[in-house]
């Protein structure tokens, strides 16, 4: 599988602030890749470096097989970008902005443009400032998706969209995925990430802390177990994979590293299980663990 984006050991400082601290990111061609991290963790900085708007201090960056700083204009023919913070020209209508960006990208697909305007219920005749935040976001999304490109770079594209539009957005991205388009999707909306992304990278403090498929990541987290046993539990407390063990007579509850589920269940069945409730980790828990400060060393 070829890589659309290949970043290794990326560093970037703004004065004394270190924004990126050895970040790694690899996005395979044809995949929708979730890019997650708490506010200020360096997601937008990474995206700006990928677009050649900022210059990397160190590390290697490859975008669509090229150097995003030196070959930015050539590479940009093959990608489309939705910024996280969309501002519009006050004296240009939304339709004009869409056309301008499309033409600058090397042409836009008229049918898709019309279809997207309908789908997102966007009035293209309003002038820049008359749009609400959500509608400005829609202008940027329509502009990006109207062109036929290999790579979509989306920086929190649905911030400000209503649930209906959010659903439209998911449909469109699913269709893009079917067509083999590569998408880098930075987002805080976990349901969106879960619905769209095959793989995710989680960054914190300018560093990648986790990357993999959602299934792999789930595997790295803990499952909650509540069990009614035949006798008192034996040897559970000694298992390193068991956390937060609580024993109340014959009832036990604990969290267990999902990868090591086997050994804890074996310990339970030795005593005899009357009932068992197992709760798989939610994505929220997964992210909260990585987002919360100081958790990096525990994980």
């Amino acid at each position: 599988m070829t890589e659309a984006i290949q970043v290794r050991g990326l560093t970037k400082s703004f004065g004394a602030t270190r924004a990126l601290n050895g970040l790694d990111l690899s996005v395979a061609t044809g995949e929708v890749h979730g890019f997650l991290g708490p506010n200020g963790s360096g997601k937008s900085t990474t995206i700006r470096i990928l677009l050649g708007l900022l210059r990397a201090d160190g590390g290697s960056v490859e975008l669509l097989g090229g150097d995003p700083w030196r070959e930015s204009a050539q590479l940009h023919r093959r990608l489309a970008y939705v910024p996280g913070d969309v501002t519009m020209w006050p004296n240009l209508s939304g339709g004009e902005a869409i056309d301008l960006l499309g033409r600058l990208r090397g042409g836009l697909d008229e049918r898709r443009r019309k279809d997207l305007l309908d789908r997102f219920d966007l009035d293209p005749t309003k002038k820049g400032r008359a749009y609400s935040k959500g509608n400005r976001q829609k202008v940027a999304i329509v502009a990006a998706l109207s062109s036929n490109v290999e790579l979509l770079v989306l920086d929190e594209p649905t911030a400000g969209l209503d649930p209906l539009m959010e659903e439209s957005f998911r449909e469109v991205i699913r269709a893009e995925r079917q067509q083999g388009r590569t998408v880098l999707l930075s987002s805080h909306i976990l349901a969106e990430v879960e619905a769209l992304c095959q793989r995710v990278s989680i960054i914190r403090l300018g560093k990648t802390v986790e990357t993999g498929t959602l299934a792999e990541l789930r595997h790295l987290t803990r499952t909650s177990i509540i069990a009614e046993l035949a006798g008192s539990p034996n040897g559970l407390a000694e298992l390193p994979s068991v956390h937060n063990l609580r024993v109340d007579g014959s009832q036990v509850s604990f969290d267990v590293d999902t990868a090591a589920l086997d050994e804890s269940l074996a310990a339970l069945t030795k005593v005899g299980v009357r009932s068992l409730v197992s709760q798989p980790p939610t994505l929220e828990e997964l992210f909260l663990r990585h987002y919360a400060a100081g958790d990096g060393d525990r994980g």
Binding site: R48, L51, G52, L53, S72, A73, Q74, H76, R77, L79, A80, Y81, P83, V86, L101, L104, R105, G106, A140, A143, V153
Partner: peptide, 9 residues
């Protein structure tokens, strides 16, 4: 930013 994310140098 969005302008420079196109082929415009």
């Amino acid at each position: 930013e969005p302008l420079l994310a196109t082929k415009l140098s």
